[in-house]
Design a binder for these strands. Structure first.
Lengths: 218, 218
DNA sequence: CTAATAGTGTCTCTGAGACACTATTTG
DNA sequence: CAAATAGTGTCTCAGAGACACTATTAG
């Protein structure tokens, strides 16, 4: 615990937010254009502001995204990470359905946990941390961030998990594991070449059985 | 991503470290005396220093602890958390065997995930975060931080897990789950009123089977 | 009818957890 | 011997995963 408010030079403190989404090509991350190339939306911390406030402001003003919940990943603090000076940056992440993003926004594909193009500063490492964090949270509960929106078929849920965990999953076993944490609405999808599928919703507060981790992980 | 090195007033950035240990009474956390009562060892970030460097320096100078590995928990950033001004603090945590601590050091007991006495600033919340993090990491591998030292009996390992997860564990099932991640040395303990127990060591890089999570969690 | 996709009945076999037994020490 | 603790053989039963079947649509 610091014993005196020291008079040392202080670092600038910034925030950056990795917003992951799923396109027809797989995982992707929202980026903005910058002098350093593709970058995560970010900003400097304003006086009296919390990191969460700053991150929300960055999403709103840089990426046109409003009302998303996100969380801290970790602080990126290499002294030379920003050539403009001493800048610490707290990386945040979240996920959102592609349909909820502003239509003209730019995204960069993510493969094997990393962005497919070079990114500004250490933002590629932030994306990698966001994907690792995504996997951890998606192991515990069905699409907790709502990448699929409120209602989805079991096929869409399974395809999402196959993209996130980069492996194929058996349809019947996956289904039986998932059914404890979601419930059928009785409503059916419009068909496309086969029996219509039921639409499911997340059971509030529900989580997967512990055994789902084994299915997903190995 | 910040587009200009802004000329806003900057916060002070501090680090605090929760060092958890196990005493005969259970979980405890290393504290130092301060103007605000019991506090975690902490310090302000020096120019050009990384957070990890600062945290190591705090442990060394405030608590007399050297050479410990630790990791970030999260940034505590409430604007009014420190009455001296705008101070962000990155909480870190680690665990260490009580025998490896300086003998005259002070510790505070932890019960149900919280310190049993009031602490400075939001340090009690940091301790709670450290305990939650401890549980997550101890679910994956046998005593990864070496709270028990290099060699231990299965009884000591099980007692540790009973303290950390606050529940009793069946000796035979726990044993069979653990044996994949540790190996017997052939050496035996000195006895105290019964058959001597074998001493075990961690298998490097080993982790518990996924099913250990079910045993520990519920 | 066939093709395509959704959903389920059922079998097998692993292995978790429980119980009770054996093993090795002290006194 | 009894008491105490360490370690294990074994039984049962849940349930994971696999397979193949049925169900419901389009054409």
């Amino acid at each position: 615990m610091p014993s005196d408010l020291a008079e040392y030079p202080r670092p600038s403190v910034a925030v950056d937010v990795a917003v992951l989404t799923v396109t027809d090509r797989g995982l992707a991350v929202v980026t903005v254009d910058s002098r350093w190339g593709d970058a995560l939306p970010g900003t400097f911390l304003h006086p009296g502001e919390t990191l969460a406030d700053a991150a929300g402001r960055a999403l709103r003003t840089k990426a046109g995204i409003e009302g998303l919940a996100f969380h801290q990943l970790r602080m990126f603090d290499a002294p030379d990470r920003d050539d403009r000076g001493w800048v610490l940056s707290m990386a945040h992440s979240t996920e959102v359905a592609a349909s909820a993003l502003p239509p003209q926004g730019r995204t960069v594909d993510v493969e094997h946990g990393r962005p497919t193009v070079p990114m500004a500063f250490d933002h590629a490492d932030m994306v990698a941390a966001a994907v690792a964090d995504l996997r951890t949270r998606y192991t515990d509960a069905p699409d907790p961030s709502g990448l699929l929106g409120a209602r989805f078929t079991l096929l869409r849920l399974r395809r999402l998990y196959e993209v996130v965990f980069d492996r194929t999953l058996p349809k019947d076993t996956f289904r039986r594991h998932a059914l404890g944490a979601i419930y059928g609405t009785g409503e059916l999808t419009a068909v496309d070449g086969g029996r219509p599928a039921e639409l499911y919703e997340r059971r509030p507060g529900a989580s997967f059985p512990r055994t789902m981790a084994a299915l997903l992980g190995g």
